[in-house]
């Protein structure tokens, strides 16, 4: 690992000030991804600004939403009574990710900021436009089994590895951000980016900005939710495909639906058109099959990941069946 300066910030203001002043610096929260990347030589910040002393760990009920501080750990959120009661989909997604040891340390903000697990990105000896713009994409014509089937570009076919983010995209969460110009809020679905010509940018944070928390609006989905993660082993592996599903069913008619997929794109992949197709229909396997078909429009397989073209719709159908209780 490279040498670096280490500083601690106790307030968001001082952390932001320090980052603005030193473009070679980066924030350090749980560190479970950052320290790994530094060991691999993928990134080499000259200064780490430890933001853990900032009091941003609160989880609380607001008038129409739940607020979660950016430094709450994955475990604290997944096990929190308010989250289990009001947003069980988030708990399911969090517990599907990583291991107990990592979830005890990894934060909500850090989970949003984690980098892709693409082999080419994580190996500095290989070409990668995300790690080193202009060096090419090793995965495009390489071993791309884990890679994207939606929204990829010739520059980058990597996928976002987060499970939590798939649930938050489905749940219409909002990201709270502080920066040198003050505070702003953006929709969770607008936080992460598609690669386009700038795969080096994972998200829309601007220079010096800090994620301070998220808000998840109250909803009527209750326990009619499911997070289904398909992976190479039954636990502790990144998703090949995952689906977050939430339904509001009254008299066997779907009133509202939320669907998002993980492991298929550079960002959590919200399935808005499939959601529309579910509304007003009975909660049956036929309805779910039709929605899954719509969800897959525009999907494009690569040499080694075309199995996802079949796996993804099947995962959508299974997640909806389990959520609605007809499985």
């Amino acid at each position: 690992m490279n040498q670096f300066q280490y500083v601690r910030a106790t307030t968001a203001k001082t952390a932001i000030g320090a980052l603005v002043k030193d473009p070679s610096a980066t924030f350090l929260a749980g560190g479970t991804n950052l320290i790994d990347l530094m060991k691999n030589g993928v990134t080499a910040p000259q200064k780490l600004i430890d933001i853990n002393p900032i009091p941003l760990t609160e989880i609380r009920k607001q008038s129409n939403s739940i607020y979660i501080g950016a430094l709450a750990t994955n475990t604290d959120v997944a096990d929190h009574k308010l989250v289990l009661q009001n947003q069980p989909l988030l708990s399911l997604a969090l517990n599907a990710g990583a291991s107990a040891q990592l979830r005890n340390v990894a934060t909500i903000g850090g989970n949003m900021m984690q980098r892709t697990r693409c082999f080419y990105f994580n190996n500095p000896d290989l070409p990668c436009n995300k790690r080193q713009p202009g060096s090419g994409c090793g995965a495009l014509e390489g071993y791309n089994r884990m890679h994207a089937i939606f929204g990829a570009s010739p520059q980058c076919v990597a996928v976002n590895p987060s499970d939590m983010s798939v649930a938050l995209a489905a749940l219409d969460a909002t990201v709270l951000i502080s920066g040198p110009k003050g505070d702003r809020r953006i929709l969770f679905t607008d936080f992460h980016r598609l690669p386009g010509d700038h795969p080096e940018k994972d998200n829309n944070l601007m220079k010096g900005e800090l994620i301070t928390g998220i808000e998840i609006p109250d909803n009527a989905f209750g326990k009619t939710v499911h997070y289904l993660k398909v992976r190479d082993r039954s636990s502790y592996a990144f998703a090949l495909v995952s689906v977050a599903a939430a339904l509001n069913i009254k008299n066997n008619t779907i009133k509202e639906a939320r669907l998002a997929m993980g492991g298929v794109a550079h960002k959590p992949w919200r399935l808005t058109e499939a959601e529309k197709a579910l509304v007003g229909k009975p909660a049956t396997e036929a309805t779910f099959k039709q929605a899954a078909e719509i969800a897959m429009q525009g999907a494009k397989g690569l040499k080694y990941n075309s199995f996802k073209l079949k796996m993804a719709p099947n995962t959508i159908i299974e997640a909806l069946k389990t959520a609605s209780g007809i499985a």
């Binding site: 300066q5 280490y6 500083v7 601690r8 910030a9 106790t10 001082t14 000030g17 320090a18 002043k21 002393p53």
Partner: peptide, 10 residues
């Protein structure tokens, strides 16, 4: 500017 931070600067 950094002197104002409650930090340990290494």
């Amino acid at each position: 500017a950094e002197k104002e931070m409650d930090e340990k600067l290494a």
